[in-house]
Design a binder for these strands. Structure first.
Length: 694
DNA sequence: GTGGATGAG
DNA sequence: CGCTCATCCAC
């Protein structure tokens, strides 16, 4: 119904010749894993989208500057973003503004917005550098644009859980396209949509129709040893191609609706997708097919890989005398483990082979918020510092307002103040009392108190940097809305009626200490729930009434065989719910405690699993914002105006817990890091050799 | 929980 | 560079 799939119409693959000369390398089980966005599925498709010179584009769009015009974003004396036309003149981030002007006399340098003491809002000020002593930078305009873009992306993609979007930074997102692609595959290729022969999920699929794949497009298929290769496409190639179609449509929407260009990478995991998006930069997308992965990686310095860009990367370079992936490939895993520690060594071994099973985290709520200032001439009195605290508080408060107004009433629990004196960094934090609303005075008082503490136990002056931050966000006390309180209620339900536990595959006991696993389970459950419910129309008007379970609703769930039918047995990698799913969905609607599983979306007039609530509501918010978008005229090029669009939640960056070196430099404490170990285990077990080309 | 360190953009 | 944000870990 409302889950739009715009790409079904234009298949680049001609189904004409249905070649079935051989079997696919993939099985029905792999296909089922795809529907679940399993991180070990060899058919998985991940995209990384990266806005081109984002800050510069923001200013260009805001000011209505022609795209070919060289443009840079200035922050005090430096340039923090340079658009592509300007880069042709050899400009980079480290040139000063005078050097820049010399290299490119035509360059426009727009200074970022700033806050001024006493102001209620940031603004674009002329001659900002003159005010460095009294203003602080504000990146709010870019956060706001980032939100609009994220909303646009969420709008063009189908509703969750087919959609999975992770905001990775202000100008980057990851998409897990697996589930969506799965649904497209089933529709386009009925021959694989049926049950497996003999109901055996280990049966291989038939080959896809073997006409020439139209890898065409500006989207680039990349790096292919071609010649010697088996040119027959398999389902992973089809999946990538569909992924590329989706990404192209996402980029087109961003371009048309918001005027931004971006680059993208499409590949089998996050790491490669990200390398892919950086491969051809402005306004292009790159597909890295599975069979091209190693070749693609070979060309890189491994220091380009995430988590290897810092000290860990240096350490590896020093210990192995190279920074090339190609050369490090020769190092046996034992040697890597010996020199880097078991966990890090194993991780490096896999990552340079293109293996990365980190998941795309579907959440986008902010976890902390920070306002900071480096003092060019240092400051020397607490009076000065206090004045800056006031500004920080105003900044943070205004951002909190945006967050909370349109979001699920979350509020920060702790306030912390960091202080730097020379090389010395110190910080103190305090909890924000709950109960009363947060306002500037409250935050300001706490901040002053923290400053007092810092000043007391240490020589504080001269101070070269101050940062005030809030964190420990949690759902507001009023909100029965939100995961947090859901968990509380769920725990209570569990204690009272243990028998309902596990009926549907949830592991209640691990909810609190194992967020990652929890997340994974959630998705399997959600997936099945949705597919089982598909065409149900219900007419509750209030989520609170669900426990009155109208008997009619019980019939909601003949689990849709197309996607919910999964084998169970041996492999615990697959989330298997098969018949249990049907049963539990039924029982969900009969017993009182189920309320904790569900909420009712008024807009959709449907029930959804509570675990999907945040995501679902987020999606609605995105759509609302999009609707508004369409009727908004952009603000005029004037330079002293705030371009304040409506704010929408967004925000958080749920970074995957990635194996970083547990040991770090001084390899004294080279133990610990169990998360790495888990990752490795998962990887070894799941990552199929099928993932590689022949 | 707190404060420092690291890594990312 | 300057400003954010996130995660991990020893304490």
């Amino acid at each position: 119904m409302s889950s739009s799939q715009p790409f079904l119409a234009s298949s680049p693959i001609s189904p004409a010749t249905a070649g079935r000369r051989r079997k696919s390398r993939f099985t029905y089980k792999h296909l089922a894993q795809l529907a679940l966005s399993s991180t070990t599925c060899p058919l998985r498709v991940i995209a990384h989208i990266d806005l081109d010179a984002f800050y510069a584009q923001c200013e260009g769009v805001r000011l209505g500057i022609p795209e070919e015009q060289p443009l840079a974003v200035q922050q005090w004396q430096g340039l923090i973003a340079i658009n592509y036309p300007a880069r042709k003149f050899g400009l980079n981030r480290h040139v000063t503004i005078t050097e820049a002007r010399k290299l490119c006399p035509d360059l426009i340098m727009q200074h970022v917005a700033t806050w001024k003491e006493g102001d209620e809002k940031w603004a674009y000020h002329r001659d900002a550098f003159a005010h460095i002593a009294t203003h602080k930078v504000s990146l709010d305009p870019y956060r706001l644009e980032s939100r609009r873009i994220l909303a646009c992306i969420k709008d063009v993609l189908p509703a969750p859980p087919l959609q999975r979007v992770e905001k990775a930074s202000v100008d980057e997102v990851f998409l897990d396209l697996s589930a969506q692609i799965h649904s497209i595959l089933l529709e386009r290729y009925p021959e694989i949509s049926g049950p497996a022969p003999y109901d055996d999920p280990t049966e291989f699929l038939t080959r896809p129709p073997t006409s020439a794949l139209d890898w065409d497009t500006d989207a680039l298929v990349d790096l292919d040893l071609s010649e010697t290769e088996d040119d027959d496409p398999d389902w992973d190639d089809i999946a990538m191609l569909l992924g590329s179609e989706i990404v192209r449509s996402v980029r087109a929407a961003i371009r048309e609706r918001l005027k931004y260009t971006c680059s993208a990478g499409i590949a089998r995991n996050k790491m490669i997708a990200k390398l892919g998006s950086a491969h051809k930069k402005p306004n292009q997308q790159t597909i890295v097919r599975n069979r091209a992965v190693q070749q693609f990686m070979d060309a890189f310095k491994f220091t380009r890989i995430r988590n290897l860009g810092g000290k860990l990367g240096d350490e590896v370079v020093n210990k192995f005398g190279t920074d090339q992936v190609k050369e490090l490939l020769a190092a046996p895993v034992e040697q890597l483990k010996a020199k880097l520690g078991d966990d890090t060594g194993t991780w490096v071994y896999h990552i340079i082979r293109g293996e990365d099973s980190s998941e795309v985290n579907a959440r986008t709520q902010i976890k902390s918020m920070l306002s900071a200032k480096s003092f060019r001439p240092t400051i020397n009195t607490s009076e000065q510092a206090v004045r800056w605290l006031r500004i920080f508080v105003a900044d943070i408060q205004s951002r909190l307002v945006e967050e909370r107004v349109l979001e699920n009433k979350r509020r920060p629990k702790v306030l912390s103040l960091h202080h730097r004196q020379g090389a010395q960094m110190r910080s103190r934090q305090a909890s924000i009392p709950s109960g009363r609303p947060i306002d500037e005075d409250l935050l300001f008082d706490i901040a002053k108190h923290l400053l007092g503490q810092i000043i007391i136990d240490g020589r504080a002056w001269p101070c070269s940097n101050l940062q005030l931050s809030v964190g420990g966000f949690e759902d507001g006390p009023t909100g029965n809305r939100g995961i947090g309180s859901f968990l509380v209620r769920a725990e209570r339900a569990k204690a009272m009626i243990p028998s309902i536990r596990d009926a549907d595959g949830y592991e209640w006991s691990k909810v609190n200490d194992q967020p990652d696993k929890r997340r994974k389970l959630d998705h399997g459950a959600i997936q099945d729930y949705f597919s089982g419910q598909e065409s149900q129309e219900e007419q509750h008007s209030d989520a609170a009434n669900v426990d009155n379970a109208d008997p009619e609703a019980v019939s909601l769930s003949p689990p849709d065989t197309s996607s919910a039918k999964r084998d169970g047995d041996e492999d615990d990698e697959v989330i298997t719910l098969d018949e249990t799913a049907g049963k539990s969905a039924g029982s969900l609607c009969q017993q009182a405690p189920i309320t904790t599983y569900e909420y009712f979306c008024d807009a959709c007039r449907k029930r959804f699993p509570t675990v999907a609530k945040e995501e679902h509501e987020d999606w609605h918010l995105a759509r609302e914002l999009q609707a508004k978008e369409k009727s908004i005229c952009r603000s005029e090029p004037g330079s002293d105006r705030d371009p304040h669009g409506s704010a929408w939640s967004s925000g958080s960056v749920k970074r995957s817990t990635v194996p970083r070196a547990g040991n770090s430099n001084s390899n004294s404490n080279s133990n610990s890091t169990t998360t790495t170990q888990k990752k490795m285990e998962k990887m070894e077990k799941g990552q199929s050799r099928l993932a590689f080309g022949n």
